[in-house]
Amino acid sequence: MELAVAPPMDSGQVRAGGELADSYLDVRDLTKIYATRDGVVRALDRVSLTAKRGEFLSILGPSGCGKSTLLMIAAGLIPGSSGEIRIAGQKIDRPRTDIGIVFQSPVLLEWRTALGNVMLQAEARKMEHKAALKRARELLASVGLSDFENKYPHELSGGMRQRVSICRSLIHSPDQLLMDEPFGALDSLTRDQLVLDLQQLWMKQRMTVLFITHSVAEAVFLSDRVVVMSPRPGRIDRVIEIDLPRPRTLAMRESPEFADYSRQIMELFLARGVLNEHPGGKAE
């Protein structure tokens, strides 16, 4: 457990894109304590990390290690208990509106159609209606929901709902995308597709992405860097730089380099007791 110190962060590296990236998201010694009826819960313990502008950063960790909490704080939606979080040097003390956010659950308004839910974002931001409508339709089409624009959430499958919520987070082309296990509820095929779509979108728009997942493959596939968190209390265990060429392809997942990154992470989880092998035992 005492290993759980954030390694020194990279300083002004040249990114894959070529530009000299400054630190955009800067989390310093962030601690979050939940005071509950039956005692305190230490959700985050002195977490420090930075993300450069346009970087794709994944947070990977076991259930309950504080990933969602970190995301909520990064969105300015809940306050940290100590430490601070800065965006482009600016301290966050209120909900950020420069973001697109995808929650762990779809969070759709039941009384709005799929299209209406995507358009909510546009309405809230007073975007030009016609252009926004066009973009909303394009986004829905890009995730295969053209025929479901006018369906209400209860008429959609769980995966479709989550796709609608992803479209909603993108319609205003935010500077930063915060995604909390956005593909968790999806079947693996749709998941692969959306992972590819997200990569393409990111390569086009180069927004800064904070992507929470507990899929090792997803994290390695998408990220510039993967932040691995230790089990509760959530700390940063290791930051792994993923040095694979882009665009990454599904075939690349079978490559030795990819497998190497996956193994690094897996071994970390084994060492921390997040995963336990049963040598010689039967599969349970």
Binding site: P95, I101, L109, A124
Partner: peptide
């Protein structure tokens, strides 16, 4: 989360209430 969503979209308290 619905309230959080409204906040992150920049909806004011009034708009959040009615929308």
């Amino acid at each position: 989360e619905k309230v959080y969503l409204a906040q992150s979209m920049g909806l004011g308290p009034m708009a959040t209430f009615f929308k």
